[in-house]
Simulated scan of single mutants.
Amino acid sequence: MKLNRTALRTVDILKLVSKKPDGITLDEICEQLSIPKTSAYDILTTLVHTGMIHVAREQKQRYTIGLTAYRVGINYTNNMDFISTIDPVLKAFAREVGKTVFFGVRADDEIVYICKYEPENPIITTATVGTKNPIYCTSLGKAILAYSQEEEREALMARIHFKTYTDRTIRNRTDFLKELELVREKGYALDARELEEHMECAGAPVFGPDGTVMGAISVSSLYKPTEDYEALGRTVCKKAVQISKLLGFIGKI
């Protein structure tokens, strides 16, 4: 897949500027992102014109995030209003299972943790809200991709670069496709210490009113040889079905 360099630079500039509430100069942007000044200036001029970035015309112009970017963010938040519906259910679920519960969505070939719910005495997990992990070695990612549209799944599979994190990490397309088939048979996915040696997770897909997969929920904890993770997976699957119905899904998984 060929990516447009200017578009990538634009995104990088927006990310950098958004982290600088006091503003950042053109020189600082060029230095931190290793972008030629002429290229950065052209991108910034366009972003200022569209309102994505605001410029304070002082002795040295300083750039801050603009009103249009804020509105885009608000629109995204509004589209995530369903979180308020599932929030109490997942909080109660975390207390019920005594483990950390996540809700995540797909971002290209990764999953993003949108929500995190912990029991009273949580086991520390490295994943935090907003962080990303590969789709092929997380229960969230497997659950989402297994139930995505076939055309969408095939296009994504072509972009995945398999990296080994533990001895149990899936290493190739063939094994991953077999894993996704197994997920569809069971209704849930397992991360059998594929991302982190000491963590095991079980995840299941969450569907919206139109039947498309919106994301997934997962339960994460330190690995215990005595724990029945298949049973945990079935529990997570039941909760995911409950949440899907709560969100208006009336089909059959």
Rank of each mutant, 00 (worst) to 15 (best):
K2T: 12
L8V: 05
T10C: 09
D12S: 15
D12P: 11
K15H: 10
L16R: 06
P21L: 02
D22V: 08
I24G: 08
T25P: 09
D27E: 11
I29M: 14
C30I: 04
E31A: 15
L33Y: 02
P36W: 00
P36V: 01
K37R: 12
T45N: 15
T50L: 10
G51T: 04
H54I: 05
H54W: 01
V55H: 07
V55R: 10
Y63T: 00
Y63M: 03
I65L: 10
Y70E: 06
M80L: 15
P88Q: 12
P88G: 06
K91F: 05
R95D: 15
F103I: 05
F103S: 05
Y113I: 07
T125Q: 15
G130L: 07
T131N: 14
K132A: 14
P134K: 11
Y136D: 12
S139H: 07
S139T: 01
A146C: 07
Y147T: 06
S148V: 06
E152D: 13
A155G: 13
L156Y: 04
L156T: 00
M157R: 10
M157C: 09
Y165E: 10
T166H: 09
I170G: 01
R173C: 12
E181H: 11
G187D: 05
Y188S: 06
A189E: 09
A189D: 00
D191P: 06
R193N: 08
L195F: 05
E197T: 03
H198S: 12
M199R: 02
E200T: 15
C201E: 03
A202W: 01
G203T: 08
P205I: 00
P205T: 04
G208V: 02
D210W: 00
G211P: 00
T212Y: 11
T212C: 13
V213W: 06
I217F: 00
S220V: 08
S221G: 14
S221P: 06
K224I: 04
T235K: 13
C237N: 12
Q242D: 15
I243A: 02
I250W: 11
G251L: 08
G251D: 05
K252H: 13
